[in-house]
């Protein structure tokens, strides 16, 4: 086959995929705001996404905060700037590492679960059954997941921020010899509202992206168990990449020119 034709085919497929995801996103958003609302499903999804992700996100944040304190102490020591550990840990965690690592961990846990569940429903005709039972699958399956993930991720990341900062504090005070009171004072003095808010906005965007990719790939899965497996992998990979891409643009939005 002509190499130019291959490039053209790949490019066209990419454009088709963007178009499909865009239409899917608009459908999902429309059904979030239009009744009927499935409150019971929303709460169930919030529990599944938020509460049950807490251990993995908490552990990630704890060890990230601990490692961050160690690395900054070693790195800053080369410039006699060890006192910067507290401020760099808190800024690093709240602005970047809390939302991004939390988002990636949730993408691995939640996007895969959503794609697998909805994908299995697709290949076993359960989604068709929903339609024949006068229930819109978008409203019943997609909208509660999108809304739940968008609302829950900021809360999850806020907890992760606190745990991450505490991880840094533990290492700084117990291993690196920092004074507990002055470490906490440095942490609070250097922290600005925008650091936390930008992280929480990122978390909301990541939550939406994770649920969108989980639902989209599940909804369009086909071909039995193999198709569901592929949908699951695609959901995690695309959600992870989109988290990293949107992270740049949200950061640019908040901090460009500052």
């Amino acid at each position: 086959m002509n190499p130019l034709a291959i490039i053209g085919r790949v490019f066209l497929d990419f454009l088709v995929a963007i178009g499909r995801v865009t239409v899917f996103t608009f459908h999902g958003l429309r059904h979030i705001f239009a009744p009927p609302f499935y409150l019971r499903l929303l709460i169930k999804q919030m529990m599944s996404i938020g509460y049950f992700s807490l251990p993995v996100v908490g552990l990630t944040a704890l060890f990230t905060g601990m490692v961050l304190a160690l690395q900054i102490f070693i790195g800053a020591g080369r410039f006699n700037a060890e006192s910067a550990v507290a401020s760099i840990v808190v800024l690093g965690i709240t602005r970047e590492l809390g939302p991004v690592l939390g988002g990636l961990m949730v993408a691995g846990r939640v996007a895969s679960a959503m794609a697998a569940e909805i994908g299995t429903m697709r290949v076993t005709e359960q989604i068709d059954a929903l339609t024949t039972l006068s229930t819109n699958p978008f409203k019943y399956l997609v909208a509660p997941r999108l809304l739940a993930a968008t609302l829950t991720l900021p809360a999850l990341v806020l907890v992760a921020d606190i745990i991450g900062v505490m991880g840094g504090y533990l290492i700084a005070t117990h291993k690196l010899g920092f004074n507990a009171g002055s470490y906490m004072k440095n942490t609070i003095d250097f922290l600005e509202t925008i650091d936390v808010v930008s992280g929480l906005v990122k978390a909301a965007v990541f939550g939406f992206v994770i649920a969108l990719m989980g639902c989209y790939h599940g909804f369009h899965s086909k071909g039995g168990a193999q198709g569901v497996g592929k949908a699951t992998t695609d959901a995690v990979v695309s959600a992870s990449i989109l988290i990293l891409v949107t992270n740049y643009f949200v950061t640019e939005l908040f901090f460009s020119g500052k």
């Binding site: 569940e117 429903m121 076993t124 005709e125 359960q126 059954a129 024949t132």
Partner: peptide, 13 residues
Amino acid sequence: FGMLFQGSALFDS
């Protein structure tokens, strides 16, 4: 309409 699907298509959740 009501429909009985080939694989039953019951909601397992």
